[in-house]
Design a protein around this nucleic acid. Structure first.
Lengths: 206, 206
DNA sequence: CAACCGTTGACCACCTTGGTCAACAGGTGT
DNA sequence: ACACCTGTTGACCAAGGTGGTCAACGGTTG
């Protein structure tokens, strides 16, 4: 199906993927222009349609790519045996940062999918049962041992706060990436996240 | 300039504003379609161009409207004399919720502005010095008394966490509004936010 | 009846769209 | 020298959407 695209130079392939992710994430399916994608990727439009026979194909390929990448990255970093909440969090942060590093717009693209209602693709999207990614994401937090939290605070709200903070950090870094065009310094960010985890531990734990 | 638009029925005016905010926020200036805006607002395109002589005019009107509304709402809810950090936070949450309630996409629209690079409007945008809103927003937190925070935690990071949580709450509520089409229950949300503030106080304060 | 006003939607010229395809550069084997 | 192949280009197409205009309509007022 996508054999032509899969067999090309890796660096170029990533460029095309990131260009398409960016434009689709920004404009949505309909308003996204294949011209813009090709321009952003630095290839001719003819070549883009040589790889993917249609805009729709490209979009659905990206969808599968995103799901697969996230699943694999979770498998890579998350240890399902780990019961400690903060260790689990650290692993999830690693997943997020890793994805963010290789594909700055992939998470934004995924958010878009949920609200996509172009008849042309929404049917296919539903057929691919889009909840998978989310449910998997939230299953990551299903079996949390809340007994370690201080009894005088609400553990569920504390967990929300932590998740929002993780989200906020990611967003802040992505904004910096956009503004300065700088590659993310993953090790540094993990350290920074560790410091926040430390903060949470000393404030929320017994 | 916009006298025709200003003199029409209030409810219709809000419909037009919200429709335009939504489409511009979703698609950006270029890709936003006046057809879609008119359809979303439930008026004919002719009427839209009767109010605003051009797409550009509409866009810049929205910009000014957003800045003005936010400024006014801040004046309404924020007491500059209040020194207590959590009281200040509560006021800012009120600002945010109030804006979010009347214009679910106004904050998203404002985010868009920063990255807008259509030559047609970006020049005008810069002439209007877009930092105003942000600097004003951050000045709200400039004079914070950090002495009340626990000495064993990092006050600056704690403050970031609180801001991210506020952001996260807003986002969650907006998503719910989108999905269910339900009007926001502001008093309830303020109560909920109070509970989070309580959590922060007991965890971060001495 | 006429004057007015808010409103409509058909209509315009223009531009961009998704997609095609003949042609090309350059490497390889003969 | 030739032919063959593969990856790539960009001019090109019909179709459809764009921002913007305008003659005409229905309703209200005098």
């Amino acid at each position: 199906m996508f054999d032509k695209f899969l067999s090309i130079d890796e660096e170029k392939r990533q460029r095309v993927i990131n260009a398409a992710l960016k434009v689709f994430a920004q404009k949505g399916y309909q308003a996204a222009s294949t011209n813009e994608i090709a321009r952003e990727a630095g290839i001719s439009k003819g070549l883009l349609f040589h790889y993917f026979t249609s805009k729709k194909d490209l979009y659905l390929y990206l969808y599968d790519y995103a799901v697969k990448l996230i699943t694999e990255t979770i498998e890579q970093f998350v240890d399902p045996e780990e019961r400690d909440y903060f260790e689990r969090l650290k692993q999830i942060a690693q997943v997020k940062l890793s994805v963010l590093n290789d594909h700055p717009d992939l998470l934004g693209f995924q958010k878009t999918i949920f609200f996509e209602d172009s008849a042309e693709v929404s049917a296919e999207l539903k057929a691919r049962s889009k909840e998978i990614a989310e449910t998997a994401y939230y299953r990551l937090f299903a079996d949390i041992d809340k007994s370690k939290f201080r009894p005088d605070i609400d553990a569920d709200r504390a967990i929300n706060v932590i998740l929002w903070a993780l989200e906020g950090m990611g967003e802040a870094e992505r904004a910096r990436h956009r503004a300065l065009g700088i590659d993310l310094d993953i090790p540094y960010m993990m350290e920074e996240f560790d410091r926040y985890l430390e903060l949470f531990k000393t404030s929320f734990y017994k």
